[in-house]
Design a protein around this nucleic acid. Sequence first.
DNA 1: GAATATTTCCC
DNA 2: GGAAATATT
Length: 677
Amino acid sequence: MSAGGCSIVWFRRDLRIEDNPALAAGVRAGAVVAVFIWAPEEEGNYYPGRVSRWWLKQSLAHLDSSLRSVRTSLVTKRSTDTVSTLLEVVKSTGATKLFFNHLYDPLSLVRDHRAKEVLTAHGVAVRSFNADLLYEPWDVTDVQGRPFSTFSEFWERCLSMPYDPEAPLLPPKRIISGDVSKCHSDTLIFEDESEKASNALLARAWSPGWSNADRALTTFINGPLIEYSKNRRKADSATTSFLSPHLHFGEVSVRKVFHLVRIKQVLWANEGNKAGEESVNLFLKSIGLREYSRYMSFNHPYSHERPLLGHLKFFPWVVDEGYFKAWRQGRTGYPLVDAGMRELWATGWLHDRIRVVVSSFFVKVLQLPWRWGMKYFWDTLLDADLESDALGWQYISGTLPDGREFDRIDHPQLEGYKFDPNGEYVRRWLPELARLPTEWIHHPWNAPESVLQAAGIELGSNYPLPIVGIDAAKARLERALSEMWQQEAASRAAIENGTEEGLGDSFDSAPTAFPQDVQMEESHEPIRNNPHTTNRRYEDQMVPSMTSSLLRLEVEETSLDFRNLAQDSRTEVPRNVNVHQEPGREEVTPNVQRPNNVPRFNIIRDVGDAEDSTAESSSSNRRERDGIVVPVWAPSTSGYSEQYVSDENRIGNSSSYLQRHPQTHQIINWRRLPQTG
DNA sequence: GAATATTTCCC
DNA sequence: GGAAATATT
């Protein structure tokens, strides 16, 4: 290690000092400059929503005070270009090392790789770590080394890995502060005046910050965890862990969660407490889903905007702003859905069950494009998380290999009596229905007039009639699906005739090309040009500004934007460095279907930097997990097809819907997009 | 207790 | 909708 130069520890979504490998490495190496860079414009369409920014603000303040208690502090920077800001910090502090923890969303993968390259080129030693996952995505594969494509296989493998997830690290007792006298901090602005009032309410319910996260974890493990299995179906329960926002910002490490929870499980297993054991399994599964969302994002970097399976390519989404608005405002006429949407709006929070209810209503009953819903979640959820939300919405939309079938509609009335049998949840969030007896609470449209009158309800006036009948929705869904199959057949015929090569790729998931389209009404300018006014977008429930016809026209354009994006990132990733193709993988010709050929990411093995490689080299591949492996997005370097799922024996088994339509068992080859233009 | 109805749960 | 768990006969 070079003498003199300090280390930069670059904080992102790992806002904790406990079990933070990057921080620990920095501390071990000597003096530390802790940095957080706020560059929301880089997030493009995923500029964080109001409540998410509120959380971040609190969390950073908390982190700063923790750092101060161990004698350093957090340098904060406002930036529109993270990498050059990092360079600036390097120059102003004389740092010679950079440490950070991995992220797996597509933007971070590209940016972090670039950061690593640029800084390395400037003579900075860069090391990165796994702090966000139990196992790195590239370590969890089937026996042939291929990534899994269903959650259960993935999770089964995670739970039976030959080595345990790393044990959590203790927080540093003391940190030697690097010289920041020439490195000033910017004041970061996370909320504007109009947002302050709403934000003030959040503080009553939530306490961001890593030590609060730790407390929340302990509370959960010693309390609700044991009943988790029993209570999980209750919409209104305070029996969830409430850890998700903490986890999103990395205030608590999943490894710590995993370890503590596992300890409980062993305890309960020894006591013969079957229910407790089962509860732990279920809770861990939800942790596993979070892992899986990163895994999917890493293996399929477009999963936040593109369906993984292509079978909905020609689905005629209903582009109806009125529907969208009614859904957002909780005025669909289905009490459970509406209660959920009101809760979401009021608190930034929803029980997982209710997320499923409102989102599947959105996709199946309203048939709105799922990306709109996902974007709204992104804007309003306290725990908005790109990877998790993408996984969730893709699951709901049936575009995952193991997702639920598309052609099935759950009835909110039945779900209501399932998750909210006494109607308490509905009454809490829909005061207008508060006096309705339980018998009718989940289907007021059936209630006798006298009952409604007694409850003070006038349907269509102070509470809406169902916006769409379930039967009508089913019929419309069937029509839409047959239209979709027709279009697809036509397109396939056209392709076979060689007349229209690849038509449909750029149209795929048409109005789901959300980006600026569903930007709410007032600003047509891209976010990056207009940071102040765009804050307002998140403030009120507004309607997309595009009319349907405009939106349809926009589709091609957004696809073009998307191409540019892909192109851009290509140029950022040098072709010669990242190629790591395993034997037998590279020769797959496009359109020749092979099972599961998807390696799109390559892994840099940075041998020169492996200070601990000798220490652990004998014990399996453990050493690869820290510091020396950096996830790299190198889409242009791989020469094989991405025909994902043609092995019907594997994927087909998981869904009869897919079995009936085997030709759709393909994960779309997004990489082909740039070439079709 | 095996055969059979019924309910539950799918990321 | 269907596998799997659970209840019923």
